[in-house]
Design a protein around this nucleic acid. Structure first.
Lengths: 238, 238
DNA sequence: AATTGCTTGTGATCACCATCACCGGTGCAC
DNA sequence: GTGCACCGGTGATGGTGATCACAAGCAATT
């Protein structure tokens, strides 16, 4: 089965490769089947907005393939990226449960696919399946936890270099090889990195220069290599 | 019934005055009764720590009387206050549900009383009462929402004056009288205000001076009066 | 190859706010 | 009373990072 944007469509949750990590999976057979029935699926190009900050929640999106970025903006146009989402993530859950507007916008960073579960259907489903509601609560509390890490870095980590070092470390720990090195494929622009750590494009550019000069990292094409992890950790906790 | 610190002990949730606002109230009779059985209550002096950031969660606290502040600190001692809690609030819920360490510390700002529900009892209770789990999920998503407002102010509002104005407005809207004025009783020190908006004590002091000179606000003893709300709103959105 | 648009590097400048320092006030305990 | 701890006001200073400006690199399209 072929789809737009060169993707293969995943048309059944029960056979989805990211099934294991997914909060709506490993359900009882009938619950899983019912969920599979009420969802619809769609394919999105790069740049597509799944939803926009301030909108009334229509439902949740389950990212099946591709990456998305969640961001919030001020009226003057300043933007911060609060999360990068991968396949398996559930987007918009908080807004649907609390019946408040989406608190962020979700934009596809590459072509991908997402399942959509309408608000009403989900709420009814949760009422019928109390055991799943507790898992939703667990997911929400995890979201809350990461929100607090964001608060800590924004509010406590003072200098841009500290936040930058922190970001680099969080990337590299996710991708550590057995030889200790941890190459990271850079897919973000300096501008986007700046929006993550709450600074400007220019400062990010200068930070890259500075860290390269200090031998903390190395760039091969778009692949980033951490050269001196202890030094980075020292910058973070300083 | 008299208690330490000049408080009257509230010994039964079913007759508690803040019952209505409380997520664990308006339950079915048997659920409410069971919850009343598994909770214990205690009275705390000013400065008491209900729990401390990083601890494994022992359970949730339901604030019955008094105010508490939630804060998180960095190793170097910088602290931010993330929330001020009143009677009726449930503290530590996220950590218990997600089984992660408390992400904040909770300190009593004045003498008060709190009910304690042990972790295991609560989780078992939620498993037995799926309908309450959904309400817990709703509460968690509301928490998440306020966390995002915190993220927005920390990450998007650039200048201290902007955050200060924002804080003043949030206080005054909670206490607007029918004549349009909105006196606020100031119970926080400059230091604490600084920890809320992420700046220093000195800057807060200077902001008070500046805003007074600009006729934006007025101080009568410890009562704060907003004199020019539109101007404050303009500072916020600027 | 040329054009266009987006991204990145880097210099110069400057406002802002954290920091340090010090003093006066107020309440509290002894 | 005296001492102590905390709180609030205010000056001086300096570093830091945002901002502006411009050039150069790179990719896609025609």
């Amino acid at each position: 089965m072929r789809a737009p944007y060169g993707l293969n469509i995943l048309d059944n949750c029960l056979t989805c490769p990211v099934r294991e990590e997914h909060i709506f999976c490993n359900l009882s057979v009938q619950a899983g089947q019912r969920l599979n029935d009420i969802k619809s699926t769609a394919v999105y190009p790069k740049g597509a907005m799944l939803f926009i900050e301030g909108q009334q929640p229509r439902g949740v999106f389950v990212l099946c393939a591709g990456k998305a970025k969640l961001s919030t903006s001020s009226r003057e146009g300043k933007t911060i990226i609060t999360k990068l989402s991968d396949a398996g993530d559930v987007l918009g859950l908080n807004s649907v449960i609390s019946s408040r507007p989406y608190e962020v916008s979700a934009e596809m960073m590459e072509p991908g696919q997402a399942n959509f579960i309408p608000r009403e259907s989900l709420l009814q489903f949760l009422k019928d399946h109390g055991e799943v509601a507790l898992r939703v609560a667990e997911q929400l509390s995890r979201n809350y936890y990461t929100a607090y890490e964001e608060i800590r870095t924004l509010g406590l980590a003072t200098s841009p270099s500290e936040k930058f070092a922190k970001l680099l470390l969080s990337w590299s720990t996710k991708s550590t090889q057995n030889d200790g090195s941890s190459p990271v494929k850079l897919t973000l622009t300096h501008e986007e990195i700046a929006e993550i750590i709450g600074t400007t494009r220019e400062t990010v550019s200068r930070l890259f220069s500075e860290f390269k000069k200090k031998q903390l990292l190395q760039l091969k094409g778009s692949t980033l290599l951490i050269r001196n992890r202890p030094a980075l950790e020292k910058i973070v906790q300083s």
